[in-house]
Amino acid sequence: MNPPIKIMDKESMRRALMRIAHEILEKNKGVEDLCVIGIRTRGAVLAERIQGYIKQIEGLDVPVGVLDITLYRDDLTLVATQPVIHETLIHFDITNKRVILVDDVLFTGRTIRAALDALIDFGRPATIQLAVLMDRGHRELPIRADYVGKNIPTSLDQDVQVILGETDQQEDEVVIQNKHKV
């Protein structure tokens, strides 16, 4: 097995997320009606960070929430045992809000499909925009991101791993690695 290749370090991750925060503010002309919702687990951490950068830039807090999409997965009838459900924490009404949905890696698009269905059950947002740190291609559904940290061409037998201080107790980085051959 080849060693993992680092494709983003801590500094470039910070710059990418800061740029995304700027782009969000530019596109939405400020923070009015804005809210940020991250998909568990790493999307939730990235959502917190983007919210922090927005505060640095504009000096204003936007609401931030956490979404667990397990109950909306399209493969629940295929897995052998039920995946663990974690709490969804959205303590504000998203109706008529501009929702920035955040995830770490955009791949097949199935997670985002599940997240969109879940969000619609919470209310009727004015818009939902998608921000991802990495876009690795191979979409299986007609979904694209509005804000991308980095586009990275991959093959299907590679894994893209986003490592974050908050969840992995390790310095931020993104690595790409060939999957274990069984």
Binding site: H86, E87, T88, D117, D121, F122, G123
Partner: peptide
């Protein structure tokens, strides 16, 4: 633990998930 996560569903406007 699972119940703790599912309790929130009953507090939503749309009290139904497709699981």
């Amino acid at each position: 633990e699972t119940a703790k996560s599912l309790k929130e569903v009953s507090l939503r406007e749309v009290k139904k998930v497709p699981a």
